[in-house]
Design a protein around this nucleic acid. Structure first.
Length: 1103
RNA sequence: GGCGGAGUAGCUCAGUUGGUGAGAGCAGCGGUAUAAUAAUCCGCGUGUCGGGGGUUCGAGUCCCUCAUCGGCUACCA
């Protein structure tokens, strides 16, 4: 069967669906996999996509890169695993399921039943992993979709157990009682990695309050806080011992202590003025001075050092609450303090704030009052100070962020509620503790999923001691980071990270394999088998279920050494453990070590950069460093983010989001893939329809070259034979385009091997331009002509070779259009050919086709045409106006000869009558001599400006002569003589003024602008021809229709037409030229060179 | 607050180890072509290369400084 004719008006979207069906029906993917069995392995590791929502256009970027490089490696002859991954466990899924169920708190889940809830989470993951699978297929993403890994799988979870077990054996797992950021809405704490995601700028009601000092009548500490709810749990007040403090006396006689500097400090002044990190509507902050002035004025009493205040006792703001009177603290008790009977109220004194780990003062002047309210149960730093100084902890909130018993009227109220806060402020006001309230804008941590404001609570959490970070850092350098700065970023994170909090007080996630015992010891179980061995209770209920809550919670174990019976902690794990373990779990680290050794480490991973340095990359590196002390992947390609077309984030609520499905069906996925692949990975991608249209133009160009070929190939019944190209008598342009093609093939391999698809695509763009706007345009007639000679065959074979190889080299990038082309031009002709372009081998450049000299000669020829067009433009002489002579200048005799040899191209393209080389430099051009500054600079340094001046001022002709005869040109510089050799001067030719000329790349082209009568008339006729052609088109005549033309030509035009009557009639298919106007079938006024006259057309009746 | 960045045409961005009058794509304008869909090609730019200072024979490029915009990071109590 021959090649089929192709409609140039293709519907790309429909075509893509056809190709998808074709792959599906014929198992093309499976055939590719089979073909590559046993070939050298190339290991790609997929970072799991969160299977919680449909896939977005931002995911499609990474997935395009993943698919493209995998397709390339497959065609290049490698065995691949093709395993996609879904991230399944974690809070993000829980939150969505809660939303569906209308839940508002963790308690709702417990009442609903953990088992049912966890089942719904699993269902959600299954639902969206299916949707994402279908979307990915639509994108053309080739994966072994039935073999996707799920991070919730038993294998994945148990492999994490093995990891934790190893850490446990090394003594790196510990339980910490710390104050951590906590979401009452989600009922869990957050790790260092997570709170970074959820920081938001908000305005809080900040309060100035006063703590009355004991034994100092009417004297107060002035304290400031943005979290009034923590005042209930105040234990102490910290100062900076080295700072100056001031005592002022207010209008009512009461005295206040605070940092002296703060009296006049304009807090957040810069932020307010620049409206940067500022919230609209929040008034400017007042200085403390201003606040007191507005309260009736004040006088400064004295200045003192902070150290003088240390030890002063005061009365706390909520000392009437029971919690303040519990020995040892509340509800957590410090044993030693409890035995001494020390209560919250007993700790109320001024303390030295001290320094933090890096040696900075904890208490500073500036934002607050220089006296910091310390609540060791409500803040991280407060807690550390409390531990150091032996203060009790008062922790007021339960896991929903509500006040617990012991806090009087606040018990049961939600700390983050606006109303609670208002009640507290009102209470402080009523009891005359409040001095002033203001709105204070600052960045505060929020729950990254629910948006809930975080509070700080004391909780038991589980940590990995990361004191072995050097082990991780050492493998970072074994990885090739693309872009290279990724390495530094990763090191930076590793240097600064703290211990890894791995526990989460939730339901759906990795069941941390930690069992605790009554003697406060704990034990980490490393495998399902070990669990079975140690189980003393609940195994029967657990067996057959996945290692998740609630089933796992039933199993109790006997401690292998102490024999005590232990219960599993209720916590689930940090989800980055789930994703970090995949180089082990998915490759059978435990179950099939032989397989694992084949595929580990991965050759390549590619993911979106932001965030992953502390998330996936981190967990991958950490887990691999511990388990194998080896980098888990060799090359990492990171890419930036997808934004909307103006550079803003895409948001559902802003209405600027583009959904994947919509984009795929409107733009087409070949277009999308091109956009993604050509994007510089370091820059954010501005995704939008205008951008897509630019890309579509390029794909259309490819399509049109193909449809041009296919149309004529079908007409002529062209059927390529094997090695047919070798037998052809190729034209110059055939060889030229084939040379460019093979260079492009070579570049394709180079750039794909280096994961630089963008560079490859830029070259494809240039090649397409050469192909379409030079090769095809110049050679069109060879395909049209009626005789089927060798020349025509050569043209067919050449274009066939180009299109076939283009289809192959572009197939990883544009899998659909290339498949369509391949099916027609290859499979239609040869049923024994590979069934799909994607089953072909990636082409190899054949050096026998690469002829750089010829390419440069043809490029020069092309350049002459471009320069000629440029000259015409400058002189405002359109192509239709024939000109007598084109003259060109070049130093290169070979090029000159070449241009002469192929002058027909130039005559045709530029509509000139003859062409000649001018060696008389004075005709067309002047020489311009320029000093070669980099070279001269190195030799003569400071003399450069003088030399430059002299060279420029010298007579160019004499320099050229001197160089030609002596090989150097000498000039005097004071008493020095400087010899400028050829390499120190640049000789350039420039067009002389007054000529229509252009120059570049060592070529100069000029056109004679003078028109004789004959040229002028010919031009005039061509103008008329053009107008008539337009009329024919407007009239809707067929291209082959013969016509009669009716008009009364103005005299000048009439003479011209008569001179070139035959030419005119041939071009316009005119059989009758009538000198009287008649409207005919179609008529219109036309304007030629300023003269307007009506013209009428009528078709010749042929039958 | 700390640490990298960035700034070049109306818009998006290139500009090698400092070297001669600073570039591309898009948009606009003029012309032009028909294998080419939202479709071709050619031509058209007085850019304080963010401001200022310095190093150098020479700075978009190196150094300092000021203002601007983003990123990462931080326990702003």
């Amino acid at each position: 069967m021959p090649i089929k004719k192709v409609d140039p008006k293709v519907d790309f979207i429909a075509m893509e669906h056809k190709v998808l069906d074709f792959w599906e029906e014929n198992d093309i993917f499976a055939k590719r996999v089979k073909a590559n069995e046993g070939k050298p392995r190339w290991s790609f590791l997929d970072g799991p996509i969160t299977a919680n929502n449909p896939m977005g256009v931002h995911h499609a970027w990474g997935r395009t890169l993943k698919d493209m490089y995998q397709r390339y490696k497959a065609m290049d002859g490698h065995e691949l695993r093709y395993q996609n991954g879904f991230d399944c466990q974690g809070l993000w899924v829980e939150i969505e399921v809660e939303k569906e169920l209308g839940f508002t708190s963790k308690r709702d889940v417990e009442e609903f039943g953990i088992e049912k809830f966890v089942d719904l989470c699993k269902k959600r993951v299954h639902k969206y992993s299916k949707i994402q699978t279908e979307q990915s297929k639509r994108l053309g993403y080739w994966m072994d979709w039935d073999n996707s890994y799920y991070t919730m799988s038993d294998e994945n979870n148990y492999t994490i157990w093995a990891f934790l077990k190893k850490l446990f054996n090394n003594g790196k797992v510990y339980r910490g009682t710390d104050v951590v950021p906590w979401s009452g809405r989600s009922g869990t704490s957050y790790s260092q990695m997570e709170i970074i995601e959820g920081r938001k700028l908000v305005a809080h009601d900040a309060v100035f309050v006063r703590f009355p000092l004991n034994n100092r009548e009417n004297e107060y500490l002035l304290v400031w806080t943005t979290t009034p709810w923590t005042l209930t749990s105040n234990v102490a007040a910290a100062v900076n011992v080295n700072l100056d403090y001031v005592c002022i006396s207010a209008a009512d006689g009461s005295k206040y202590y605070f940092a002296k500097e703060n009296l006049k400090v304009q807090r957040l002044d810069k932020q307010f003025k620049e409206k940067k990190n500022w919230i609209d509507g929040v008034p400017k902050l007042k200085t403390i001075e201003q606040i007191f002035k507005e309260h009736g004025g004040f006088t400064e009493e004295r200045t003192l050092k902070g150290s003088e205040m240390v030890g002063w006792e005061y009365e706390g703001p909520f000392d009437h609450f029971q919690a303040q009177h519990e020995p040892g603290g509340f509800p957590f008790k410090k044993k030693n303090l409890e035995s001494q009977g020390i209560r919250g109220v007993d700790c109320h004194r001024v303390i030295d704030g001290g320094k933090d780990d890096i040696g900075n003062d904890i208490v500073v002047a500036g934002e607050g009052t220089g006296i910091v309210h310390i609540a060791p149960g409500c803040g991280d730093i407060d807690n550390k100070i409390g531990k150091k100084l032996g203060l009790v902890d008062i922790a007021p909130l339960d896991d929903e962020s509500k006040y617990i018993e012991g806090f009087d009227w606040l018990t049961g109220k939600l700390a983050t509620d606006e109303s609670t806060k208002n009640e507290i402020i009102q209470d402080l006001k009523d009891r005359q503790i409040l001095v002033y309230v203001e709105q204070y804008p600052h960045v505060y941590p929020h729950c990254w999923r629910s948006g809930d404001e975080l509070v700080f609570r004391i909780v038991d959490e589980w940590y990995i001691n990361m004191d072995w970070r050097d082990k991780i850092k050492s493998i970072v350098d074994d990885i090739e980071w693309k872009p290279a700065w990724g390495k530094e970023r990763e090191h930076e994170w590793l240097d600064n990270m703290g211990d890894w909090m791995i526990s989460k007080k939730r339901f759906w996630g990795l069941a941390l394999p930690i069992w605790t015992f009554e003697d406060k010891s704990f034990y980490v179980v490393g495998s399902k088998e070990e669990l079975k061995e140690l189980a003393v209770e609940g195994w029967g209920e657990f067996e057959g279920n996945s290692p998740h809550r609630p089933w796992i919670d039933k199993v109790k174990i006997r401690h292998p050494e102490t024999g005590l019976i232990g219960t599993r902690i209720k916590d689930v794990g940090n989800p980055w453990l789930d994703a970090g373990i995949v180089p082990f779990s998915t490759m059978g680290y435990i179950s099939d070590k032989e397989y694992w050794e084949k595929w580990f480490p991965a050759d390549f991973i590619t993911e979106c950069f932001p965030g992953q340095f502390r998330n996936w990359f981190y967990s991958l590196l950490a887990m691999s460093a511990l388990l194998e002390e080896k980098a888990p992947f060799k090359t990492l390609l990171g890419h930036a983010l997808v934004k909307d077309e103006t550079g803003r984030d895409m948001h559902k609520s802003w209405g600027n989001a583009i959904w994947f499905d919509e984009a795929a069906e409107k733009m087409g996925v070949d277009v999308m893939r091109w956009m993604y692949a050509v994007q510089n990975v370091e820059h954010n991608l501005r995704f939008g329809y205008p951008h897509a249209n630019e890309v579509r133009k390029k794909i259309i160009t490819l399509w049109n070259t193909y449809s041009f070929f296919a149309t004529y190939a079908a007409l002529d019944g062209f059927t390529p034979e094997a090695n047919g190209l070798d037998k052809q008598e190729l034209s110059l342009l055939d060889k030229w385009v084939l040379s460019k093609l093979h260079t492009l093939i070579s570049d394709a391999r180079t750039h794909f091997d280096q994961y630089q698809a963008d560079k490859f695509i830029r070259k494809v763009e240039r090649f397409l331009d050469d192909l379409s706007n030079w090769y095809i345009r110049r050679n069109r007639r060879r395909f049209w002509k009626s005789e089927d000679d060798g020349d025509k065959q050569a043209a067919y074979y050449t274009l066939y070779e180009v299109l076939l190889n283009m289809a192959k080299i572009l197939s990883p990038l544009l899998p659909f259009i290339t498949e369509t082309i391949y099916q027609n031009i290859v499979r239609n002709v040869d049923k024994n050919a590979f069934e799909s372009v994607h089953l072909c081998n990636y082409p190899e450049a054949n050096s026998k086709w690469i002829d750089e000299k010829l390419v440069s000669q043809v490029d020069a020829l092309k350049h002459v045409v471009e320069l000629g067009r440029s000259s015409r433009n400058k002189a405002n002489l359109k192509i239709r106006q024939p000109l007598a002579t084109l003259a060109f200048v070049t130093k290169d005799d070979e090029i000159a000869a070449f241009i002469h040899e192929h002058q027909d191209v130039i005559l045709d393209e530029l509509n000139v009558k003859k062409i000649e080389r001018t060696s008389k430099s004075t005709d067309l051009i002047d020489y311009e001599i320029k000093p070669n500054l980099p070279a001269i600079g190195q030799l003569y340094g400071k003399d450069v400006p003088v030399i430059r001046k002299k060279v420029i001022e010298a007579d160019p002709i004499s320099i050229v002569k001197a160089l030609k005869t002596n090989g150097e040109y000498s000039l005097k510089l004071g008493d020095k003589i400087i010899n400028l050799t050829t390499d120190l001067v640049l000789v350039e030719m420039i067009s002389k003024e007054g000529y229509t000329a252009a120059e570049g790349d060592g070529l100069t082209v000029g056109l004679t602008t003078e028109l004789d009568e004959s040229l002028r008339r010919e031009g005039l006729v061509r103008d008329i021809i053009r107008q008539v052609q337009i009329l024919r088109k407007e009239a809707g005549f067929a291209v082959e229709d013969r016509i009669h033309v009716f008009t009364k030509f103005p005299e000048d035009i009439l003479k011209s037409i008569e001179d070139f009557k035959e030419y005119f009639c041939n071009e316009t298919l005119t059989v009758g030229l009538h000198k009287e106007y008649q409207s005919g079938e179609f008529f219109k006024d036309i304007t030629v060179r300023g003269t307007t006259f009506p013209i009428g057309l009528k078709r010749e009746i042929t039958d």
